[in-house]
Design a protein around this nucleic acid. Structure first.
Lengths: 351, 351
DNA sequence: AGAAACGTATGCAATCCTTAAACAGAAATA
DNA sequence: TATTTCTGTTTAAGGATTGCATACGTTTCT
């Protein structure tokens, strides 16, 4: 009972012989309404099984309490964690999140921005797709006064706040570690795409080599999509070289795992003959044998920080032309068996 | 330029000296509007940089084109995949998805339902939290005419459509496989929670034992939260028994991995001394050494099917008191090294 | 004492933007 | 001429919010 079709504040008003505006104020705990009335309203609302209509409120207020998230795909551990972190913070502030996937597809990304704007989200948090080279669509939210924050896959071509990890540093640390383990011929799996994270990792790789006076060898850099299969074929390719590498640093954990599979199949010892390291600290990296040395990206933290930064900017108001903030998280090198040569000391190991 | 504050259909109407309703119809490709007018409207809309206001449309139509998803957590591989599958289908139909996490917390789950109803979602797709034992809050959407579909963690206490895998069958197959490998003392990791999936897996385990005339042993069933740590302690516990088990079937992959870690540390051969099997086909299961035998749940497919079922019900209309459909997907046993004894034939292996 | 001033609690009416039913004028057809 | 057909217009929601107005009781001042 008491569950007719749609109950509105007018129904509550009618029941109590007051007006809808009073009901509205009472429900919003407006100080202009007496305690007595508030209580009566609350009680009647419950009795009638009233459900607030956020849509109507959003129309009136110009605020939907929804923020949009755009990720290439929702089911990669990294993005899933970031989404979780964002939702966690948003939820605390009574915001809801709409999630959309671009599938690394440029057109879809453009459409998605448009759809989110039409949905009247109060802001957008995004990670740019791999194939995106023109960023004009990311300017549209700001033109409309909708704040935008980018994470991980960002670009400096836009004047927006962004949160990322120091991919350069992470890569540098990996390569430095491999060198300290005695490796001198270190291969690198990277992506041909113009994605900042991969460019940075490559830069870190090259700089570490340079700093340790190891010559850069073109033939040791393999460009691919960095998936498991690419790791396999990349490794095969490296094994064709007259001189094998003594380590492979893949810009993605998947690539490293592919390489590990090939090496195991061929009974090539990891890490003793060829050491391996990945990037991302995907859950599976700790379960392989040997466990994979990798770089943790603090994905959950990144999600939280991104959301916090977003809401900070947000509170400042759309008028305040605030300077875009760039937050760079320090990655952590996770040293595991795949790169730990026999005599080297175990340190910094993490499950 | 052309980007003032907010452009509405009235601005377009004014510019063209027609009325807003005509503009609205033109934008919606209503046949009652002439081609000439439509083109003019479209052109003006572009010129003015018009962005449709879905909120206003939703208020008017009583349809938001948003569906809500409730999952315990967004960053478990299984749920992340399901979410991806749902979003994929929803997106094709021009729906957006709001994602909320219940964190397996009952109160939060209740609140979330309420928040989604207030947000005026057109429907809800949910997986029930582990600690939920009262399902009244799931009745509310239907009272309000908002369709609800459950997946994976479902309940028969509600008259709703649901999509799940045949957990019973999956578990049965695992245990049958272990028996065929020669195991006779098979332990099982399960959950103390009243979650259907775990109860079904336990039932499958027991029935397989019974069918093969292996006595059920209370001491071999370990109840825990099924995480990595629980798998470790569960394994430790089993190793205290006077007589060790010769196989462990964990209702979750994490539990199985924990067990594997302990066995490796103690140099107990897997699978020769103790075979292992998990459930879920988490990505990491194929990377461990030995790779973990498990059950694939077709999470992505489950997401897609759930969404399709949802939209099917949806199109039928809220009035049609349609009989709730129960879709049960067949799981696939993925046999890998952790359960394959030396002499047994390799079959059905999958990366 | 009478009136102005003030504070409290609420009502009134407009607004947010889009849509659809009902209606209307002009051209086309019977 | 009467009736459709086309193409729009008028008008009224849809539900919540808010600036301004109002009603009433109390305090303060002359």
């Amino acid at each position: 009972m008491a569950t007719k079709t749609k109950v509105t504040i007018h129904d509550i008003a009618e029941k109590l012989n007051i007006t809808a505006s009073t009901v509205s104020r009472a429900l919003n705990d407006n100080p202009r309404i007496s305690e007595v009335t508030k209580k009566a309203v609350l009680k009647a609302a419950k009795q009638l099984n009233y459900q607030p209509n956020n849509i109507a409120a959003a129309l009136r207020n110009g605020k939907s309490y929804i923020i949009g998230i755009i990720v290439p795909t929702a089911d990669r551990a990294f993005f899933a964690s970031v989404v979780r972190g964002i939702e966690e913070i948003a939820n605390k502030l009574n915001y809801k999140v709409i999630i959309s996937q671009s599938y690394d597809n440029y057109e879809k990304e453009v459409q998605t921005i448009d759809a989110l704007l039409s949905a009247r989200v109060d802001g957008i948090i995004a990670s740019i797709g791999k194939n995106t080279e023109n960023f004009d669509h990311f300017k549209r939210p700001q033109e409309k006064g909708i704040p935008l924050v980018l994470f991980d896959r960002t670009t400096d071509a836009l004047e927006v706040s962004q949160v990322m990890i120091d991919d350069y540093l992470g890569a540098y640390k990996v390569v430095e570690h491999l060198i300290q383990q005695g490796c001198r011929r270190i291969a690198h799996f990277t992506s041909p795409k113009k994605v900042s994270v991969f460019k940075e990792r490559l830069r870190g790789y090259m700089d570490a080599l340079r700093d340790y006076e190891i010559p850069f060898q073109e033939e040791l850099v393999i460009k691919s999509n960095l998936q498991l299969e690419d790791g396999r074929s990349g490794m095969e390719q490296l094994l064709q070289l007259k001189e094998w590498p003594d380590a492979v640093f893949s810009a993605s954990d998947y690539g490293a795992m592919g390489a590990m599979q090939v090496l195991k199949e061929r009974k090539i010892a990891v890490p003793d003959v060829i050491a391996l390291a990945g990037f991302g600290n995907e859950p599976f990296t700790s379960f392989s044998d040997p466990a994979l040395t990798t770089v943790d990206q603090f994905s959950l933290t990144m999600g939280r920080i991104t959301a916090e930064l977003f809401f900070e900017n947000f509170k400042a108001g759309p008028d305040k032309k605030l300077v875009p903030q760039k937050t760079v998280l320090k990655p952590e090198l996770i040293i595991r068996g795949s790169s730990l040569k026999a005599k080297a000391p175990t340190k910094n190991t993490k499950a």
